[in-house]
Amino acid sequence: MKTGTLDWRQLMVDFRLFGILLLMMVGLTLISDRFLTVDNLTNVLWSVCLIGIMTTGAIYAPITGGIDLSVASIAALAGIVANVLMNVYGLHWLLSIVITLLIGVLIGWVNGVVTTKFLVPAFIVTMAAKTYLFGVAMLVSNGDQITIMQPKEFLAIGVSKFLGIPIPIYIMAVLVIVSHILLKHTVFGRQCIAVGANEVSAKLSGVNPDRTRIIVYIISSVTASIAGIVMASLTQQAYAMNATGYEFDVITAIVIGGTSLMGGNGSVTGALIGAVMVGFINNGLNLLDMPSAYHPIATGIVILAALILNQGVSIPKSIQYLLSCFKPASVK
């Protein structure tokens, strides 16, 4: 974390990522003539947009040394809840969105309190949350794929454009900027990084680690809810399986962006580029007519590779070690 002047280290990482991104685009253009079409790029944009929105909030958990695996379920639930509020209870669409976001706050608060006050590993708490929230989403929607017919204003969030650019892009852009500023230029951002870097030292310097962490999970949960609302509006659908598996895309994006899962550092811009890459990877698999089964495989491999690279592990050395494991003579 260097402040005041440009962050050269992060810039290098971002720049390197950008280079890989360009290479991917060139590669995809060469592989498939369908890649560089408006239709296809719009498709990529949508998925990047949703992952991007989630990422802006979900990145704080890894920065403090935790993780939030419940974002996908929260997003799905948010879409369903918003629909119920608008179309079953007939609330105004804005009010419905506000209530949905408040529910997001509550979920995040529970996640945060259980991890900090009861010292349960974050991944267990959020994995459990993922499970029960999915159940709640199924229960509320009765497992149906509900088509959202109205109100028009709600549906407009996903489809209408301003200056020729779709609204969700603006939402993502605003959240990225806000999140970036929050992380790099506010007291809260400093506290998050400090808690992730060395909790004891942070505490002795006057930071309240528990409070910081609880806020982190609330932020994560709220951005996931926003993503869920955008998704519901975009797809005109409320469905419990709408975002299934997105948490892995989100983690992949964050990890590609150079954020370690051990805490103490993080880059919102890096994660954004990561989100675009995840979008391209998924799109590339589609364009190559690879079955959707390749998607989790690619994600898994990318996560592992990015984590290992983030740790600064020398690849040749590791291969050497790997080989030595198979040699019967080497007794360690």
């Binding site: 974390m1 990084i193 400090a194 870097a197 060395n198 030292s201 002795l204 103490g264 550092n265």
Partner: peptide, 12 residues
């Protein structure tokens, strides 16, 4: 263990 945050700059 208690004093420094090793992964962070002097400024931080």
């Amino acid at each position: 263990l208690q004093g420094i945050m090793g992964g962070i700059s002097i400024t931080g």
